[in-house]
Amino acid sequence: MNLTLRVWKQDGPDSAGRLVDYPVTDIDPNASFLEMMDILNEQIMKEGNDPIEFESDCREGICGTCGLVINGQAHGPKRAVATCQLYMRDFHDGQVITVEPWRADSFPVIKDLVVDRAALDRIISAGGYISVRTGPKPDANATPIAKDKADHAFDMAACIGCGACVAACPNASASLFTSAKVSHMALLPQGQVERSRRVKRMVDQMDHEGFGNCSNIGECSAACPKKIPLESIARMKREYLRAVVIPNDAS
């Protein structure tokens, strides 16, 4: 396949960016999108030029490192996959493909397509955990958990922290990400003790980081590679209200 890539180039957080066109040739339709980017970079470097900076790691949709806005869509045209799980057979010969970084005030650009998503870690740090120490614990089977509950908690815990939800949201809200963690823990018996404190602190941190508010548009969930549903945000809002009414977790 031969294609034109229209790629966002930006030297650093404070520099102005621009779209640059690159021809890319001889791509195997079974190559992944990121392999195509590797090949393009090889072609660019053969000419002695600077490659396009982008990030990836697992290249199988689980680490959350990769993340490109492709033709205007976070993680590209295919649903429920991360950028690294796109294959060139999903595009067509001769296509012009625009590639841009996640765009959000809370995700400053580091270079080209690489952004800083540390704000997401700080949201987790504000309470996305069950406060237990390492050490002797009750037997793992001591508290039975209904299978559907456990499965549901798993569905929420499947979030890979990629930030596509933020990139897709017109308000750049991190609600889907935050709500996935809030839901995972609120659904489990282990998560009850800190239920109020957790949701309050996480939501406050999210606001503090400058992410926008959720206005129920739903682009986040459509872009999410792990299909975290919008109802997760609804649960977070309920949890937050509950926390206002019952501020002490002892209940």
Binding site: Y129, V132, G135, A140
Partner: peptide, 20 residues
């Protein structure tokens, strides 16, 4: 102990219908 620790942290391991 690893399994006990992980469950206490909220790791959602697969379960049977009886909740184990």
């Amino acid at each position: 102990s690893i399994i006990d620790q992980a469950v206490a942290q909220g790791v959602p391991f697969a379960r049977e219908y009886g909740g184990e």
